[in-house]
Design a protein around this nucleic acid. Structure first.
Lengths: 153, 153
DNA sequence: ATGCGTGCAAAGTCTTTGCAGCTTC
DNA sequence: GAAGCTGCAAAGACTTTGCACGCAT
């Protein structure tokens, strides 16, 4: 994973886009900064982001949001999370030491974040073995929380 | 994760279902055995499974397949994989030493499996800390394969 | 000036659900 | 018998796409 992307500036984004023949737009800038200002550990679905922007008076269409998050995920700026819920969530793809993983309760859908540096090390090693460049690595532990263990179903 | 589920018998499945007030059916038995006979490392989407069964002359409806794989995933018999593609894949949730993880190329969608016991250990420790019972843990490394690195987009 | 990006609405894909009849416990 | 299951078709949720216009380069 590349250098600190939390401090990723609009200029840096523009440079990276232009390098590939793409363009900087106000929408893209707003979306990037929204993710940068998100409290650590919070992740948004496309729809979450849409409504959050609406509330801030930013009218960005859902289509643009879908297109943008997918683009940024491909660029390695966002990480695409697939937790138990049926839709994808996005959050900034952060370098150590902010990089984290998820523990999910299959019954209650509770999600707990945790950090662990060994995982990144392991991932790096595996990727090297196959000649892959690592963009992101996610350990998802699926289990049953204490509350879930008490429920019948 | 519980004891060896590769050798999970129809009777064991029935017992587990009945214990929760559910029932054993021919469809469920066929689906379980299909996953058990899958070569290690192969995983199926609902649709894959549907067509594979059709070819074997087993006419099980797509609805039933969706219902069954979800049920078995909740029971911890199958693991639900969300790799890069847009739909879910399923495979037997196997204990050590068959348990494995995935390295995915974001550009070509190539998927490589790998094993690593440390991950299960780490997961167990994290889960213990929060009082969770572990059903499954999946490390997904997203990156770019050598071939992918050569492509423009 | 070129051609990428946006918004809108329509179309798609994968998945879930209501219901009648059948099956399992 | 009662209640869960299946299959079918229809409905749903989320995501993608075609097109005309506007905007970044």
């Amino acid at each position: 994973m590349s250098p600190d992307q939390t401090a990723y500036s609009p200029e840096a984004l523009k440079a990276e886009l232009n390098a590939k023949g793409w363009r900087m737009t106000p929408q893209r800038e707003v979306i990037l900064s929204t993710f940068q200002n998100l409290p650590e550990g919070e992740h948004l679905s496309a729809e979450d982001l849409f409504y959050r922007l609406q509330e801030q008076g930013e009218n960005i269409s859902l289509s643009t949001i879908y297109r943008t998050v997918k683009l940024m995920a491909r660029m390695g700026i966002l990480r695409e999370l697939e937790l138990t819920e049926d839709h994808k969530h996005y959050e900034l793809n952060q370098p150590r030491p902010h990089h984290h993983h998820h523990l999910v309760c299959m019954k209650t859908n509770r999600v707990i974040e945790f950090k662990n540096d060994q995982i990144l090390t392991i991932s790096q090693k595996v990727a090297d073995k196959y000649g892959f460049k690592v963009l992101d690595c996610q350990l998802t532990i699926i289990g049953v929380s204490p509350e879930g263990q008490r429920s019948i179903f």
